[in-house]
Simulated scan of single mutants.
Amino acid sequence: MTDPNDLDRLKALDSRIKEVKAKAPEVNHMKKDYSQAQHAWRMVTELVAGLLIGFVVGYGLDYAFGTMPVFLVIFIFLGFAAGVKTVIGSAQELQRKLLDTSSSKDGDN
Rank of each mutant, 00 (worst) to 15 (best):
K32Q: 10
K31I: 09
A37H: 06
G89A: 12
Q95N: 11
S90P: 00
G107D: 10
L99P: 00
P25C: 02
T45A: 15
D108G: 01
L61W: 06
L98C: 02
A22T: 12
E19Q: 13
H29D: 14
F80P: 00
I17S: 03
E93D: 14
Y63M: 07
K23D: 11
T86D: 12
L94T: 10
W41N: 13
A12G: 03
V70S: 09
K21E: 14
F65E: 07
E46F: 11
S103Q: 13
K18Q: 14
D14Q: 11
R96I: 08
A24W: 02
A64E: 04
H29S: 13
D33V: 11
S15A: 15
V84Q: 04
P69E: 03
T45H: 04
T45D: 08
F80H: 04
A64Q: 10
G107E: 10
M68C: 00
S15C: 00
V27R: 13
T86A: 15
R9T: 07
L72P: 01
V87T: 11
V70M: 11
R42C: 02
L7S: 03
L51V: 09
V57W: 01
D6N: 06
A24T: 15
K18W: 00
I53N: 04
G107V: 01
M30G: 05
S104P: 00
R16L: 12
D6M: 05
L72Y: 06
T86E: 12
A22C: 01
G79W: 06
T45P: 00
V84W: 01
Y34I: 12
L47T: 07
L61S: 04
S102E: 13
V70Q: 10
R9V: 08
V87W: 05
L99W: 03
S102F: 05
H29A: 14
K21Y: 07
L52K: 02
Q92K: 15
F77W: 09
D6G: 00
A12L: 08
S15H: 07
F77S: 06
P69S: 04
V56Y: 07
A81D: 02
R16C: 00
D108N: 05
D108T: 10
